[in-house]
């Protein structure tokens, strides 16, 4: 069963009661919420995601609550509890959905050390994954959204999950958050994509989420080997260039980009080594999305 098959009323009741068990990629998340407005947004973004039937083992327990007292009426807030613990300061009530998204990302990054976790977008074509590892501001999400709009399968916008045992990439499709200028860039570039509401004044500025393509959710259990490592660098006005880089350099960049390279010790070293050995490694500088996509399509066609 997926979330859309659950009538709105029933979903709200479940969220307020024993919680919804949502499947996202390899993870099962138990979600509780008693927060006005969250249910509709959650339903919209996760409509095609599978609901796991009880009883099940949840990997994460996320609970959204409204702090009581005066804050209920005066500038109401929302608080996220991860496994019963407060880890963030409260957000304005209207930002419940982005808070949920960040909270879940944070929980995954802190806990899922059975994987090498890269801070990377991942998209698949022809059975192989292109990793786009980058820190915020380099246009990773924008490029990822643009590729997905042109038919690439979305693996993940935020996490490159590499399985330690076999080096395969594990999909973790979720809504893609676009920030500030990239919202309009993608609206213009791919008018067909479905955006949610814009959240203004978050700590990353304005954020709007793209709905995860249904096909990507439906294939969330299909892993794939890595094929290409492309470090994106958006810079206004620069000519397009796709420069191969040497494996040692790619290794260092990738190790630095990982959430848990250090933690994994030898296994981290081996996983990153295997990745750079199996991939062609490039730095992509771009200012024009169309040009960039043509170039990347050429790369993967050959």
């Amino acid at each position: 069963m997926n979330l859309a098959e659950l009538p709105g009323e029933a979903l709200a009741r479940r969220l307020e009661g024993k919680g919804i068990l949502l499947q996202t990629g390899p993870f099962t998340v138990r979600i509780h919420s008693r927060v006005e407005g969250f249910t509709q947004q959650f339903r919209r973004f996760y409509a095609s995601f599978p609901v796991v039937s009880e009883p099940a083992i949840a990997d994460f327990h996320v609970r959204l609550i409204m702090p009581g007292g005066i804050r209920r009426r005066w500038r109401p807030q929302v608080l996220l509890l991860l496994d019963g613990q407060e880890v963030f300061l409260p957000y304005p009530l209207s930002h419940a959905f982005p808070l949920f998204e960040w909270g879940l990302n944070w929980a995954i990054a802190m806990q899922a050390h059975q994987y090498l976790m890269l801070h990377s977008a991942a998209v698949e074509t022809a059975g192989k994954v292109m990793l786009l590892p980058a820190w915020p501001g380099s246009g990773k999400s924008t490029l990822c959204a643009a590729l997905v709009s042109r038919g690439w399968r979305l693996f993940s916008d935020e996490f490159g999950l590499v399985r330690i045992d076999d080096g395969l990439l594990v999909p973790l499709p979720r809504p893609t958050p676009l920030k500030n200028k990239s919202i309009d860039v993608i609206r213009e570039f791919a008018p067909g994509l479905e955006f949610g509401p814009a959240f203004h004044g978050t700590r990353k500025g304005t954020v709007a989420h793209l709905r995860t393509p249904d096909a990507s959710v439906a294939q969330a259990h299909i892993t794939a080997p890595p094929g290409w490592l492309v470090f994106p660098r958006y810079q206004a006005g620069v000519p397009l260039s796709l420069k191969p880089i040497a494996r040692p350099q790619a290794f260092l960049k990738l190790a630095n980009n990982s959430f848990n390279y250090q933690l994994l010790g030898l296994h981290g070293f081996q996983a990153v080594t295997r990745l750079v050995r199996h991939c062609d490694c490039y730095i992509l500088s771009y200012s024009d999305l169309d040009e960039a996509i043509i170039k990347l399509n050429q790369l993967t066609d050959t």
Binding site: P26, I57, D59, H113, Q114, I164, Q262, L263, L264, G265
Partner: peptide, 21 residues
Amino acid sequence: LPASVRDHFKAARVFVTHYQR
């Protein structure tokens, strides 16, 4: 054990190994 329990245990051991190292 169920696969997800194995994963939690695996992750926990990574954590422990790191802190002991």
